[in-house]
Simulated assay, not measured.
Amino acid sequence: MAEALGEVPDRPLRVVAVHAHPDDETLATGLALAHHVARGDRVHVITCTLGEEGEVIPIELAHLEGDPALGPHRARELDAAMARLGAEHDYLATGSSRLTKPRWRDSGMAGSDAAAHPLAFAGAPVDQGAELLAERLGILLPDLVLTYDQEGGYGHPDHIQTHRVTVAAVAALPERLRPRLFAVLTPRSWALEDRAWLAEHVPAGNGLTVPGGEDPFPPSVVDDTLVTHAVEDPAAVSAQVAALREHPTQVTILEDAPAPYYALSNDIAARLPGREGYAELDPETGALLR
């Protein structure tokens, strides 16, 4: 049985989630963020880029794809999503600019033109990003830090870089100030249950693909024994859905089933199951603690 993500009986927890692009915070850790806000904990999100290279779903916003205006637009989406979750937010940057703009930009997928940009986050020196983040963590003093596993969830270069930077930042803190560090992971049994739910409930002919039980999983789906902690709170799904609705360039929420589900620009249906799995990381190495 997975443990609760964090318990401090005598005061509210301080939780920080570090993410690569706007919308990642709600897709990957939105349930935990909503759950901890509802508990009265202090929740803070740090975003590393504006997601300038993201694909755009709605036809009426298609003109933003590949346009410099997409980054600021996604920043506004992020502001609205944070208001829905009740979380505080800033960017990986210095001084007052951390409130409006990150130091680096979206790198796109590996091999893209964006990956060669001089400000691409994936190509930034890890120690520079870690220094900025460690400074911020030293002020926020979190009990828990949430981010991606070594594979960045699904292999995006900015997600992998976010993992590296976050691990290095936590390791750089004095031991007395170090938070517990967690990566988002999904137990294989949960992933199979989610696909079975989608196959049963997603209507045919709505233009989405429902992945089959034998289709490959992303790297963040792992053996159940590797997932040591969890947030299970179906009541928090409504806040997660409300926040996802504020990211319309990236996420489509559908309600033609017994519970809301979503799709990204790949048109693959995905469930919002009211649970998230985590594993604690060694801040010295970034490896899973067993």
Rank of each mutant, 00 (worst) to 15 (best):
E3P: 10
A4I: 14
V8M: 14
D10I: 04
V16R: 00
A20K: 11
H21A: 12
H21I: 14
P22N: 13
T26I: 08
L27Q: 02
A28R: 01
A32R: 10
L33W: 01
H36Q: 05
V37A: 12
C48W: 15
T49N: 05
G54I: 13
H63Y: 14
H63C: 09
L64G: 01
G71M: 07
M82H: 14
G86C: 01
R98T: 07
G108S: 06
D113K: 05
L119K: 15
A122C: 11
D127H: 11
G129Q: 11
G138H: 09
G138C: 06
I139Q: 15
L140D: 02
V145L: 08
D149R: 00
E151F: 01
G155N: 03
H156A: 00
V167Y: 00
A168N: 04
A172Y: 14
A172E: 04
R176E: 11
L177K: 08
R180Q: 10
F182E: 06
L185R: 12
R188W: 11
R188T: 15
E193R: 00
R195I: 01
L198P: 06
L198M: 13
A199E: 02
A199D: 01
H201I: 04
V202E: 13
V202Q: 11
A204D: 10
A204I: 12
L208E: 09
T209K: 13
V210A: 01
S220T: 07
D224A: 14
T225Q: 14
H229E: 00
E232C: 10
V241E: 14
V241W: 04
H247G: 08
I253H: 03
L254C: 13
S265Q: 06
I268L: 11
R271A: 02
P273S: 14
P273Q: 12
E280I: 01
D282L: 11
P283A: 01
T285H: 11
L288Q: 03
L288T: 05
